[in-house]
Nucleic acid binder design. Structure first.
Length: 221
DNA sequence: ATGCCAGTCGTAGACTGA
């Protein structure tokens, strides 16, 4: 089964690219982040037309997460992490699909650091760690997929020394990610490429991804 | 440090988030 994750940065602004990607890559399950659309503005029709069942948690302007499946109906198990009833951000949705529990997450960016946004990031990370501990204990197949907004190691970014003050490379954020992994999760990338310099983060300014990949079809083309 | 992204409000482009 192919399970993919994609930060769309605006599900309506990026809809043509999203639909093309779903057709070409044809993931069995896809997790989307940064919908930037209220619940009623999610493009459900075009996605269902491609054969996907879908659940989503929208929000005006910011955030928003969705799970798509073309391998069986989606049974939503949770939206929002436990631990803070006042948290209004749409950043977590979870569902059972074809015998697998899928958690789609959009962890807070946390910049600037220090500041209240960074504090929120660390609190959200702690809540994720708490809930993830329960998921691990379930002893059934579980996938955490999404945008973790963390550079776990110096292998994950071009010139890590430039990011020492950034919330994504902060010691606290990297430690939180390590704590999460130690619960028993398998890092899908590092299980296969433990020592390889593979960027899991690109600066989206200055078309960093497109310039690095020397690729004719980035999301911005 | 800067800022080539998207959405909002509102009808231009400053502001915010990231």
């Amino acid at each position: 089964m192919r399970i993919a994750t994609y930060n769309v940065n605006g599900v309506n602004g990026r809809l043509r690219v999203l639909l093309r990607w779903l057709k070409e890559a044809a993931p069995d399950i896809a997790c989307l982040q940064e919908l930037k659309a209220p619940q009623e503005k999610f493009p459900e029709g075009p996605i269902r037309d491609l054969g996907y069942d879908v659940v989503w948690h929208g929000q005006k302007s910011w955030n928003g997460v969705a799970i798509l499946s073309r391998v069986g109906n989606i049974h939503e198990t949770r939206r929002g992490l436990p631990g803070d009833p006042d948290d209004s951000h749409s950043r977590y949705i979870e569902a059972a699909v074809n015998g697998i529990l899928i958690a789609c997450l959009y962890l807070p960016n946390g910049n600037p650091r220090p500041g209240p946004k960074f504090d929120y990031k660390l609190r959200w990370f702690d809540r994720l760690i708490g809930h993830a501990a329960e998921l691990v204990a379930c002893k059934q197949p579980v996938v955490l997929a999404g945008d973790f907004n963390v550079m776990p190691t110096e292998l994950d970014v071009y010139k890590p020394e430039r990011w020492l003050d950034d919330a994504l490379f902060a010691p606290e954020a990297r430690a939180a990610y390590a704590t999460l992994l130690k619960q028993g999760w398998t890092d899908a990338l590092r299980a296969r490429h433990p020592r390889e310099k593979i960027y899991t983060f690109w600066d989206y300014f200055r078309n960093a991804f497109g310039r690095t990949q020397a690729c004719a079809s980035t999301t911005f083309c």
